[in-house]
Each structure stands twice: as C-alpha cells, then as structure tokens.
Design a protein around this nucleic acid. Structure first.
Length: 816
RNA sequence: GCCGGAGUGGCGGAACUGGCAGACGCGCACGACUCAAAAUCGUGUUCCCUCGGGAGUGUGGGUUCGAUUCCCACCUUCGGCACCA
C-alpha cells in the first residue's frame, strides 16, 4: 500500500522546480501600480568564492518572509548582487598569482549557482556587480557630485594605516582596545597622508535622529554612541599675547572654577605660548607624544603626564590669569584640542591637578553639607547643589547654571552654545588596486580637478603589478597615471588611490532599481515606485560602518535632489550568527565549519532552510546541531506522506472536523503573526505541531472538505519556508501552478474560535486543578464550578474563600 | 568606568498584554515492527519525593491574589565605547 507513494527525494525535485521557476520568470519584479510594492533587501555579499552557512542564515529566512509578503498581495522585489571590489581578491591574487578580476568573476559565477541551489525568489535580472564598469562609473559619478556639493575634500592628516593590508582605513574600520584592522586584525599605526574624506560630520545631527525608522534599539544605540553628540559651549579665552584660545566644554556652569588650561601637544598655539625657560621640556614632551601609539597614549590606566608651557591665559568670565599646560590626555582630534580644566568637578582634571599640585576651586557646593573648602575635596564633586564663587551665578541652584552660564558668555561676547560630535569624516582613499579609481586628475596649475562626467568611467587598468608595496599599485603603472588636465589641457597626473568599497555599497540598493540604466545612476521612475527599502536585513557588525555610510549617502543625495525622504531603509532587522557545533565561531582552523553545499547534497535546500529558521531565534543565532537537522528532515518526510498517503475512508467524524479546522486556522493565525515579527523558529514549531495533530485526526476526517482545506492551507504555509516540496505537493494534489503565486489564506475566525477552554484553578496562586468549561461561561458559573472541584474541596477543608480572582478565559484563583 | 544584549530541563529553544513554566525539536529510556539492525510508529522524559506532595526560569530583595515577564540591588557572560573635555 505505502509502496505506491513515491519517496521524498529533494535532489530530484529541487533542481527541477528551480529550473521551472526561472524559465517561467516567476520571480521577476516589475513596476505594477495596481499592487502595493515591497522592497525586501538583504546586505550585499562579498564574492569570497564559497557561499557559507552564514549567507544561508542571512538570506533564506529573508527570502521566506519576502515570499510570505508576496503571497499577501505585495509586488515584492528581492534582488541580490556582489560587493565585488576589495582586498581579499588582491590577497588571493598575490597568493595564487591570478588576476583579481579573474578570481572575483570566477567566484561570482560559482556563488550564483550556489544561490540558485538555495531556492530563493531572487530576480536575477536585477543583479549588480560593483566591479563592473557600468556600476563603478556611477560610483565615480557620485564621488564627483559629492565634491561639487562640498561634501568630499582632501586633507593631510594623521590617519590609521594597516601595515598588513597596506592601506589607510576609516576610523570606523579600526576596532577594539588594541585598535586593530577590522578586516585582518592587525594593529594599525599612524601615518601622515593626504587623503580624500567624505563629510559625514555635516549630517551628524541628523544621523542621531531615527524618526520614522523601525530599527533595532541595539543598532540605534551603537550609532548614537558612535556619533557621540554632546551639548556644551565654545568659550574663547585669550592668551597674554592676545591670541584667541578656544575650548569646547560640556560644563559651562563650571567656568568660574577653571584653575588651569590644557592643550593637546599638537595644538598650534603651543609653540607661541611656550616660554624660553620651558622650551626644552615642552619640545621633549611634544616629541615623546608624537612617538607614542594611540593605544599607549589613550590608555586610561596610565598616570597623567604633562608640562607647563610657561604661558598664561585669561578667563573671560572673571579676568583671572591661569597657567596653560600641555598633556597627551587632551586630543587634537576632538573639540578644539584645548580644554579648560576644572579639577574640583572633573575627574581627569582632578587627577592632573593632584599630580602637579595645581590649585582647585569649588564652584558647586553640594547640598546638605557644611561649606566645603578646596582642601577638603578628595574626589571631584557632582553637578548638583548651589553655585558658589561664580560671580553673578553665586547662590543660584546648579540645575539652571548651564543655561545661565551660556547666556552670560554670549552676553560678554566670549562664546556661544555649541554641539560637538565624536564622529569623524569618512576617509575613503585606499592605496590598493582592486577598487573604483578616484576620478580626479592632479594638475600642477589647477590642483585637484574632477574628471568630467562624460569621460566616466575612469577605467581600472588590467595590466597592473598589484603587489602591495605601501604605494598605490596604480602609481606604479607605466602609463595609466599620465594624462592631461581636463581644465587647462596641460600634462597632469591621475589620482592613484581607489575608493573604500563601502562607497560602492552605499548606493547599491539604488542600482538594483535599474542595473542597465545609462542616463544616470538609477531610473527615477523605478525609484518612485520601489523606494524606500521596506525591509533591510543583515548583520549587526555594520552598524557603525555601512549603515551610517548609506544613511549619509541618502541624505547627501537628497540635498542634491536625487533621492526623496530622509532615510533609505525603513525597517532593519539583524540576524545572529551560526556557530559551530562546539559553540565556537566557525573557522577552517577549528574544523567546525558546516558546508551548505554538503547539506543541500544530503538533506536538500528545503531542510537546510527550514532548520536555519528553526534552530534558534533568528536575531540571536546559536550553535549548529547535526542532529537537529535530522528532526527537520523527519518533519518534511512526514508532511510528504501526510499529503500523499491515503487515509481511511470511513465515516467522517464531525467532532474531528471541528478540531481540525480549529487547529488549522489557529496555526494560520500564529504563523502569519510570526512572519510579520521575524519569529521564524516558532513558525516551524507551529507547523510541526499542526502536522502532529493532522496525523492523529487523518483517519477520522479523510475525504472531507475540511481535510482538503487543511492540506491546501498547510502547503501554502509551508511554501515560503520550504518552497520546493510545497510546490511539488501542490502540483501532486492537482492545484493550479504555482503555490507561490497563490493567495495567502485568510483566517476563518469562526473556525479558529475555541468552544471549550481549560480554566486553571489556583489555590493561593498555586495550580490545583483544571476544569473544562464552555468559552462563554459567566464569571459566577465559573467560580461555582471551580469551588465544586473535588481537589479544591479536599484542599480547602472547610476554609473560607477570602477572595476569588477571575481572569476571563484563563484562570480562577481562590485565596484562603 | 559608561552604554546595550543575554542568562529557562541533559541540549537548541517556547511562553502574545502580569495568569497552566518547559510548546516544538534534539538526545535518552521503554515498547511495537524485524531473525537482527537501521528506518518508521507508539509511550514517557525539569528536579526531589515517603506518591500526599515539595522545589524550580543566574543570585538576593520588593510590588501583586498571582512574576520567566514589572521594580531595586548584585553576579556571570557577550558586544560596543572608553582621558571625547
């Protein structure tokens, strides 16, 4: 009997359906104004050459949700592409002596096939490859627009250099306590170089505003901390020579407590302030500071060091003459590179004052204490209490003195309220070959001139010695760099640095709209229909890099009139990470890597997709389990035989029909909700649970309309998760092609409603009994029945119920 | 130090708005089928227990009729930032 039913062989059905879907263009997404659009985007993968389990984890649940949205009537675009420029191509090229281009495009070809084996609804007509000329032409075009709008500039400054990658890095790409390169882990060093920057800081204020965004709190916090907005004031002190010495402070209320000032060793006024007597010591200190690495210098463990310059400044609020010191705890890169020191109320200044026996003045008297004298102070004092020693602010509550102090300095013309940010401009120059060339010509007469737009792209030449020497490989090309100035026509040289690949990925979501469009970076008609991105999924590691860059791009483009709205991606969700079975990060050296190709071979794409959705909360991730996927495989086999194996055709039991329909529609309700909320693991659980129930009921409902309905809804619910088996079974029960274009069923609320419910009966908050009652039972009736329960009677033993709590549909709690 | 996430059986994890803790799966045990094994199916599976119950969601308190859920303090762990004025 059972031998009539074919076996479930994923390797037979999966490739067949993949071919059929592709041939039919089932997943083509085109403008259709009759349907609401839905732009589902997943982060652009790097073509490393092998699709790993992390790619599957990122993409297949996103695909399932996109499919769910499509079945719900949305016109869904789900594109993919390749972030194809970047260092690994060059490193592989150096190791294996193969051209980066060849390596990259071979990898892409392999990964396309791997992606196809996943069974996604990717519209391949929209694929982009960021190293294609037709793509990077527009990356260069954007660079030029940014220059035109004063959002890109060149500057000589100390920058982070990775000695392993042989290139500079943006500040966001330097990670951890030891300040290592985000890509290769090598600690970075400082170099003074002239580099190109994008002015991300212009949007700092806007970037900490997430209005209208449904983004995880975690990402918003990371970005907010990274941008590091602080409100305070800029106050101008004067040196004795009359030079303005500006400081940024977040505590203008403590201006009267300033007892010295500290400049960064690199501060331009150090030279002028230093007296003859102090000269030798100051010079030595400046030299020492310049030799220190950032890690040494920025260590908080280190005891404070510093030198008196011999110079003095005048405090504008009280005319006091205060000594000016230099110290490496003041950073030239933040604020103005100079601080006013208030040792009585700031821990760092307090430590410094202690070390060098500098005086301290209390300006905020803590409440409820006898009047404090400066010699009583053993630690910096808090910011609440009453102002003292502070001119006209004395005697007022400290709470208001921030505002009052700012008003005061504004009145006397010594400063103004100001906001400062930790965020720095984005360094985008890279001294590497495999990237988009920066479209600039350096002319001895005209300076840095951008290449005219009609001459784009500035092509990356193939015949280059790409070995890393610390110099840009393009600089070593015999002819490429020599050109003429687009402005004056005289001999000039091309910029030989290439762009950070994060520039390429800052706008790829726009190129998907029209990958072949050649009148601009994207077709405005497509833009108007598809943008903004409705859901963006990817890893959280990009919170402070790609996600800030792409928001910056959108805002800059908006101000150029190219994009609309303030944000490119409305909703963001992050997946976690799949760990090895040993709960460690997967790596070849640990030997705990799970290969998706092997999984597809052994279990099929459907089982792999389903297990990835099942084994952990998607946003958390967790360890892989080889036994776990067996469980999912069992589920698929059971579903297969549930649909295909005939049941007993006897009398249909009406009670069973009701139970079946109730369970089906309740499951439909929870599965729909879980899809909306990205709770993929409970989708699979619910489907497994329903399968168990259906298997139990099968023989008592087989042949009924309810059974037919149950099977159809079951396959439709499976379709987004396990698209191949669902399609195969859908065909085998003779439903019209395709399950993926069928309309998501709607919940029959009547059928889903419970007729009877289980009420929990508690005694003093402890569960003692459960009673089955009609769903519409009255409160009185429920209480009476609960009190009548044998167990309750026995346990109460004549005790009086003091109080009876009734929660409709849930429980009764008897308090004695 | 500051900010954020997490802590639930042997394991991965469920539990919607304060209301049955442990759904679903893995593993394990027992049973059926089999000469046998695998596969499959069925039953059981938080711990303790004198079989009445008792304890239990990192720890200690609190609020409440009732807390995995809310509040306070703390521990562990992961991630980010860190002399940012």
């Amino acid at each position: 009997m059972a031998c009539q039913v074919p076996e479930y062989i994923p390797a037979e059905i999966e490739p067949r359906w993949q071919r059929q879907w592709e041939a039919a263009g089932l997943y083509h997404a085109d403008i259709d104004k009759k349907r609401p659009k839905f732009y589902a985007l997943t982060m652009l993968p790097y073509p490393s050459g092998d699709l790993h389990i992390g790619h599957w984890y990122a993409i297949s649940p996103s695909d399932a949700r996109a499919r769910y949205k499509r079945m719900n009537g949305f016109n869904v675009m789900f594109p993919i592409g390749f972030d194809a420029f970047g260092l690994p191509a060059e490193n592989a090229a150096i190791k294996h002596n193969i051209h980066p281009r060849k390596w990259t495009y071979a990898n892409i070809q392999k990964m396309r096939e791997q992606f196809r084996s996943m069974g996604t609804m990717i519209d391949w007509r929209r694929e982009i490859v960021s190293s294609d000329e037709k793509y990077y032409r527009w990356t260069q075009w954007f660079f030029i627009q940014l220059v035109k709008h004063n959002l890109a500039y060149q500057k000589l400054s100390p920058v982070d250099w990775c000695p392993h990658c042989n290139t500079t890095l943006a500040r966001e790409q330097v990670w951890g306590d030891d300040r290592h390169c985000e890509r290769c882990g090598t600690p970075v060093i400082k170099k003074d170089l002239k580099q190109w920057f994008f002015k991300t800081t212009r949007y700092a204020d806007e970037l900490v505003n997430y209005d209208g965004l449904d983004w995880p709190e975690r990402v918003r916090t990371l970005q907010t901390n990274w941008i590091g907005r602080s409100e305070g004031a800029l106050v101008t002190f004067k040196t004795e020579a009359g030079d303005a010495l500006e400081v940024f402070t977040t505590r203008p209320d403590t201006l009267w407590g300033v007892t010295f000032m500290v400049l960064a060793p690199e501060h331009p006024l150090v030279e002028k302030l230093t007296t003859i007597e102090q000269r030798a010591e100051v010079d030595q200190y400046v030299l020492d500071a310049s030799r220190q690495s950032d890690i040494q210098r920025e260590s908080t463990e280190k005891e404070k060091s510093g030198i008196f310059t011999g110079g003095y400044a005048i405090n504008p609020v009280n005319g006091e003459k205060i000594p000016v010191w230099i110290s490496d705890y003041v950073l030239m890169t933040y604020g103005t590179g100079a601080i006013m020191a208030v040792p009585a109320h700031d821990e760092r200044d307090f430590d410094f004052a202690r070390k060098f026996y500098l005086p301290l003045r209390i300006v905020i008297q803590p409440p409820g204490l006898p009047e404090l004298k400066s010699e009583d102070v053993t630690m910096p004092l808090p910011a609440f209490g009453t102002m003292v020693n502070s001119g006209e602010l004395s005697g007022t509550p400290a709470e208001q003195s921030f505002r009052r102090a700012v008003e005061y300095v504004e009145k006397i013309g010594a400063g103004k309220a100001a906001t400062n940010y930790r965020l720095r401009d984005w360094l985008i120059s890279r001294q590497r070959y495999w990237g988009a060339p920066i479209p600039v010509v350096h002319c001895p007469n005209c300076g840095a001139v951008t290449v005219p737009e009609d001459q784009l792209p500035v092509r990356l030449p193939d015949d280059v010695e790409w070995k890393p020497t610390g110099e840009s490989p393009l600089k070593l090309h015999p002819t490429w760099r020599f050109t003429t100035c687009p402005q004056c026509g005289k001999p000039a040289e091309r910029e030989t640095d290439t762009m950070d690949t994060f520039v390429c990925s800052s706008w790829y979501h726009l190129r998907y709209l029209s990958p072949d469009y050649d009148k601009g970076p994207f077709d405005p008609q497509e833009y108007d229909y598809w943008m903004p991105v409705d859901i963006y999924t990817g890893g959280i590691e990009h919170a402070n890099m790609h996600l800030i860059y792409t928001r910056f791009f959108h805002k800059a483009l908006r101000d150029m009139g190219l994009t609309k709205g303030n944000e490119p991606m409305l909703q963001l969700r992050n997946q976690g990470m799949v760990l090895g079975e040993d709960s460690e990060k997967m790596s070849k050296s640990r030997g705990n890597v799970v290969s998706p190709d092997d999984l597809v071979h052994t279990y099929g794409a459907d089982a792999t997709r389903a297990y990835l959705m099942f084994f952990a909360r998607w946003d958390m991730g967790g360890p892989w389990s080889s036994g776990g996927i067996d469980g999912v495989m069992r589920w698929l086999r059971r579903a297969w035989s549930l649909v295909l194996e005939p049941g007993q055709t006897g009398a249909v039991n009406e009670e069973s029909v009701k139970t079946l329909r109730r369970k089906v529609h309740q499951t439909l309700r929870s599965v729909s909700r879980d899809f909306e909320q990205f709770e993929f693991n409970t989708i699979i659980s619910s489907l497994m649970e329903l399968l168990n129930e259906m298997a139990h009921l099968k023989d008592s409902v087989y042949g009924s309309d309810a059974w037919k309905e149950a099977i159809e809804i079951y396959l439709q619910m499976m379709a987004p998760v396990v698209p191949h088996i669902a399609e195969e079974l859908w065909q085998r029960i003779h439903k019209p092609y395709s399950v993926h274009t069928s309309r998501w069923p709607s919940v029959d609320e009547k059928a889903a409603a419970d007729e009877e419910i289980t009420l929990v009966v508690q005694l003093n908050g402890k569960v003692r009994d459960r009673i089955t009652v009609p769903v519409d039972i009255s409160e009185e009736e429920a209480k009476t029945r609960a009190l009548k329960s044998d167990i309750i009677q026995k346990q109460m033993e004549g005790k009086e119920a003091r109080q009876i709590i009734y929660v409709k549909g849930r429980l009764i709690n008897i308090v004695v």
